[in-house]
């Protein structure tokens, strides 16, 4: 059962990376798209992208901390 424990944590970590990667990827793609269409709005677009990016990163980090806790507190 020890192995299953680590397996669960590893699968969870993979899911976190998939989710965070998809989220950041979509955000970056949309920002690049917007900047390519309207280069003069670069500053506003960067400002608008920053906040959701950091909130998303915070959720991913929280999930990683919980995975770490699963491994440490078996």
């Amino acid at each position: 059962m020890e192995v299953l424990h680590y397996l669960g944590a590893a699968i969870g970590l993979g899911l976190i990376v998939i989710g965070a990667g998809l989220g950041i990827g979509r955000l970056a793609a949309a920002a690049a798209d917007g900047i390519a269409r309207q280069p003069e709005a670069t500053d506003q677009i960067t400002g608008a992208v920053n906040l959701p990016l950091f909130l998303l990163e915070g959720v991913a980090i929280l999930a990683e901390v919980f995975v770490l806790l699963i491994v440490l507190m078996k």
Partner: peptide, 8 residues
């Protein structure tokens, strides 16, 4: 969330 983000 601020706590966890920075420390983690």
């Amino acid at each position: 969330a601020l706590t966890m983000r920075l420390a983690a």
